[in-house]
Design a protein around this nucleic acid. Sequence first.
DNA 1: TGACTTCTTAAACATTTGTTTAAAATGGTC
DNA 2: GACCATTTTAAACAAATGTTTAAGAAGTCA
Lengths: 224, 224
Amino acid sequence: MASVHQDIRGDSNGRGVQDRLIEAAEDLFCRRGFNETSVRDIAAASGCNVASVNYYFGGKENLYIEVWRRRLAQVKDTRLTSIEKVMSAGGSPRLEDLLRSYAISFLGPLIEGDWQCRFINLMAREMMDPHLPRGTLLNEMATPVMSALGAALRELCPWLDETNVQVVILLIVGQLVYMVCAKEMFDESGYPGAFRMKIEDLVDHIVRFSAAGIRAYVTENGNA
Amino acid sequence: MASVHQDIRGDSNGRGVQDRLIEAAEDLFCRRGFNETSVRDIAAASGCNVASVNYYFGGKENLYIEVWRRRLAQVKDTRLTSIEKVMSAGGSPRLEDLLRSYAISFLGPLIEGDWQCRFINLMAREMMDPHLPRGTLLNEMATPVMSALGAALRELCPWLDETNVQVVILLIVGQLVYMVCAKEMFDESGYPGAFRMKIEDLVDHIVRFSAAGIRAYVTENGNA
DNA sequence: TGACTTCTTAAACATTTGTTTAAAATGGTC
DNA sequence: GACCATTTTAAACAAATGTTTAAGAAGTCA
């Protein structure tokens, strides 16, 4: 059905077109979402012909998947590395160090303002209505990162039982994800609030808040 | 342009049709989002004709707004009342009481399993790509609720300065919103994790975690 | 009944969508 | 240049979308 005449990895002279398509697609998907982005929009933004999406990728959906394929591992590695670096550092790292490192790896893109600034939006959208194969986001990203973060937390906070670790991770990730979504919402509404704050300061709050929340489990280490 | 031949509040015999349309629309909008729901889907689900959406509401977008008009005040009042009830109770309420009451008013729909179970999804979607007039969600819902919650927090936790109150609210709401989104994602992926937990227990965690996080500001009540 | 408004319906309409087609252009190799 | 595969292009295609139309049904009141 799909008329892909050339393998995507082929290094023929068409490579530049594929890159332009992927970049334009990523930009548009992130800003408007999958359904609100038309193939013609992508073609126009990349300066390519409408048919090239189908020629090179075999359809809009495959282009979407390809956009994800390029970024997902990258994001995952960034977060895993941030955890690893803290845990393998000399001396016994403090809980705050772990939290800050992870929070920065999560929100960092918002600080640096590069591509990920937009890709995080795509993640939030993909969570709400998925266009990736079932479980992709979970298997390629959420599960590995949560696993590593869980192991680190167990090491630093031996008073946490298995359930507590899982819950705590959810609560922390919730704070971080909401930062991204809410920032978008508040920004676009010109709302003057906590978002005038520098991201670095926001990270400070999240670290302090969550560290205290985690230590609250010390005294009551019974069941959930 | 819109050919609305009758005021929406008119109590003619067509009223049943309008209700069926709104209910079907709410159900579909919540499950699939605005763009992924077609007027024909709504018509089919409500057993009405395709044209009736335009006849009664003057367009798909107005029907969407009408769906929101019915629920937004309701959700806001539920949350405001939950705060008010705690704060006006005899004795001095504990911080945990406030947090629990608010968390339950937020997640309660997930427990009861009524319409709001789905409407919360709509809220998350509307945050990501809005189809309501600019700032509606913020003005009609987020701002009033955050204002009341902020006042309650200031009363119960006098050590919090203005910035801290705002940040703390964001962090709490983030945990709650993410519960809703993540639950959906994990559920649909058949993932065995913290979500096998009963919602009541999850609320316990959020209350304990956040209360400790808030009290962490006691010792360091300086600037943000 | 008859005139009138209100509602319902199937059909048509104009756009937009993702995709396909077939021809033209391009680039490389002999 | 001739031949070939590869790429690019404009056009066409089928399907779906929100909306409109015009005719008919149903109800209301004299």
